[in-house]
Amino acid sequence: MTALLELFLARYIYLFVLVLLAIGLYGVLAKTDLVKKVIGLTIFSTAIYLFFIEGSLQEGGTAPVIDERGSDPALYVDPLPHLLILTAIVVGVGVVGVALALLVRLYRTHGTLDEDVIAARLAGREVADDGDTPEDRG
């Protein structure tokens, strides 16, 4: 029993992050509303950030700001994942901005954000008239 508890305490991060990944993946794959898809994408990427940052933890380490205790690497946590995730968060916000711009454009063109409706309409138009489909560019 105690061995199981120790295993849980050493590994629970992976378990929770996997649950969050599953929720985000469900939002991206199974929802048909496009805004919900973007929300699922955000949840998924934040779970990835959590996984990465938890990997940078070292027992006995503090924040990677060098203070009067000297610059022994064992005293501080690993700063490299912090850098990577810091830039990844900002790029994630940029990605969300572009995705939302595309959604607004789609709504202006089609009047709906339901993925199935848009796909069916696009397929129907393509069968009806081949060349001139201005909404394809949206």
Partner: peptide
């Protein structure tokens, strides 16, 4: 750069 990009995305939306 981040300031300009975020304000631009907000204005565009």
């Amino acid at each position: 750069a981040v300031f300009g990009a975020m304000v631009t995305i907000f204005d565009v939306l």
